[in-house]
Structures are given as structure tokens and as C-alpha cells.
Simulated assay, not measured.
Amino acid sequence: MRFDIITCQPNLLESPFSHSILKRAQQKGLVEIHIHDLRKYAVNKHGQIDDYAFGGGAGMVMMIEPIDACISELKAERAYDALIYMTPDGQTLNQRIVNQFSLMQNVIILCGHYKGVDERVRQHFITHEISIGDYVLSGGELGAAVLADAIIRILPGVLNDETSALTDSFQDGLLAPPVYTRPAEYKGMKVPDILMSGDTPKIEQWRFEQAVERTKQRRPDLLGEE
């Protein structure tokens, strides 16, 4: 899978893709991540990519010209399955959306900044608008990293144990059950006996029941109980 991320703050994206699972996924050749500095497509020698909003008001607006130039250059090289704009007023990201994106091959992610992008970009270029939550960040870069991370970790071959992703919270509509590791007892705090029994069917049933109970307590909306 290939990600082309368009941003006016490329340095913000260096660290997330240079460590841990995302780094290994690239080393394995399972994913390509390309960061494109929007200022390379600026409208003048001063590197301008934004301007004042028509009608007045505070804040600057990202201009359509450099965004169009960058997208057009990318599309001339390959076809894209989605052009995603990271914006607070987009569709709230969830695991179902992540799973859908993971089936794609080539994706462009446009990071918003300032007061956002010229509305014509959203009307004529963007296929999906995604938010990672009901709050505002300084730009779309961190949101783009969150989206890419969520997608990449479930691609086949990325995790050493692929069943790990299938048992994550939200994959089956439930939160994940409690997990424990060694030591079996620590300062009087014990691991549930069922997990030490070796009885796999009973352990799986216990985990399911715990997942349901945790979901009822913490996210009843997932069960349609709100």
C-alpha cells in the first residue's frame, strides 16, 4: 500500500514513520510512505501557499493552486483509490472505516492547516473527509499519522502475529478484554485462575464475557444501549 501525504509541515511527520511497527512495515516492503512538502508548489518565490479569506475574518486559508499542482503531479504517475482530507468536521474515524481503507492500494492524505483549505479543493478533489475526534489540532499532520498507523498495522504481514490485530478493541464491535502477564501473583494481586487453567474453550468464553461486560460499562453505545 502506498501513502502520499501532502503537508506544509513535513518535519512533523518524520518521527511517526521512523520507528516501531511503521518503520518495519516499510522495511518489509509492505507499505510506502511519501511526504510531499506543499511549499514546493508555492505560487511565488516567497513560498506562499495561503492567503486571507474572502469576506474577511481571522486566520489564513490554504490556496487551491499549490494543492492542485501537487495532486495533479501525483495523479499523473498513478491512479488513487482515495484522496483523504484531514479536518475536524469530517467523518469521525472508527475501526470500520480503517478496515475499508486497508483494502486500498494508493491513497493521498491532505493535511489541513491554518483555517483549512479553499472550499473548492473539498468540492472537486477530495473523496473522503476524516476527523480523529471532536477537537481542533494545529494541523492535520498528527491526524494523518494516526490514520496511517491504524491502517498499516492491520495490513497482512505487518504484525508478527496477524491474529493480534483481529482481537483488538472494536474489530468485533466490543472493547478488548483484560490481559495479564507474569508474574501470576504480585503483592497479593493474582491473575484470574481461568487464565492459568490451560482450558482454551473456557478461556475464550471468559474473554468474550469480559469483553461484553467492559463494553457495557465503558462504551454502551457500541451495544446500542445508550
Rank of each mutant, 00 (worst) to 15 (best):
Ala53Glu: 11
Val43Ala: 05
Cys111Ser: 07
Gly56Ile: 08
Phe54Arg: 10
Asp118Ser: 10
Leu22Asn: 04
Lys75His: 12
Ala148Phe: 02
Arg96Pro: 00
Glu73Leu: 09
Leu142Thr: 14
Gly56Val: 10
Ile35Ser: 01
Ser18Thr: 00
Gly57Arg: 10
Ala144Pro: 02
Gly29Tyr: 02
Ser138Trp: 01
Gly57Met: 11
Lys23Phe: 11
Leu147Phe: 06
Ser131Met: 03
Ile109Gly: 00
Met62Gln: 12
His34Pro: 14
Cys70Glu: 11
Gln48Thr: 15
Ser102Met: 12
Val136Trp: 04
Arg24Glu: 02
Ile108Ser: 07
Arg120Tyr: 07
Glu129His: 06
Ser18Gln: 08
Glu32Gly: 06
Asp68Arg: 13
Ala69Tyr: 00
Tyr80Phe: 15
Asp118Asn: 13
Leu13Asp: 03
Val31Arg: 06
Ala145Lys: 00
Asp68Glu: 13
Pro88Met: 06
Ile21Gly: 12
Asp50Lys: 06
Ser131Thr: 05
Met60Trp: 08
His113Lys: 09
Lys45Glu: 13
Pro66Trp: 05
Met104Pro: 09
Met63Ser: 09
Asn94Thr: 07
Met86Gly: 03
Glu77Ala: 10
Ala76Lys: 14
Ala25Gln: 03
Asp68Thr: 15
Phe17Met: 05
Pro16Phe: 01
Arg122Glu: 08
Gly47Trp: 04
Gly139Trp: 03
Gly139Gln: 05
Ala144Val: 12
Arg39Phe: 03
Asp68Pro: 03
Leu142Trp: 14
Leu83Ser: 06
Ala69Gln: 14
Val43Asp: 01
Arg96Ala: 13
Val121Gln: 10
Pro16Arg: 00
Phe125Val: 06
Gln123Met: 12
Tyr52Thr: 11
Ala148Glu: 01
Tyr41Gly: 06
Gly143His: 02
Phe17Cys: 05
His36Gln: 02
Gln91Asp: 13
Ile109Glu: 01
Asp149Lys: 00
Gly47Val: 07
Ala42Gly: 08
Glu73Asp: 12
Lys75Ala: 09
Leu83Ala: 05
Pro16Gly: 00
Val107Phe: 07
Arg39Tyr: 03
Gln95Gly: 05
His113Trp: 01
Leu30Trp: 05
Met60Arg: 05
Asp118His: 13
Tyr114Gly: 04
Ile49Gly: 01
Gly112Met: 05
Glu14Tyr: 08
Ile152Lys: 01
Asp134Glu: 09
Arg122Gly: 09
Ile130Thr: 04
Tyr114Asn: 08
Asp118Trp: 10
Asp149Glu: 14
Ser131Glu: 03
Asp50Leu: 02
Ala58Glu: 15
Tyr80His: 06
His36Gly: 06
Val121Ile: 15
Val31Asn: 07
Gln91Cys: 05
His124Leu: 13
Gly143Tyr: 03
Thr127Leu: 03
Lys45Ser: 14
Asp89Cys: 06
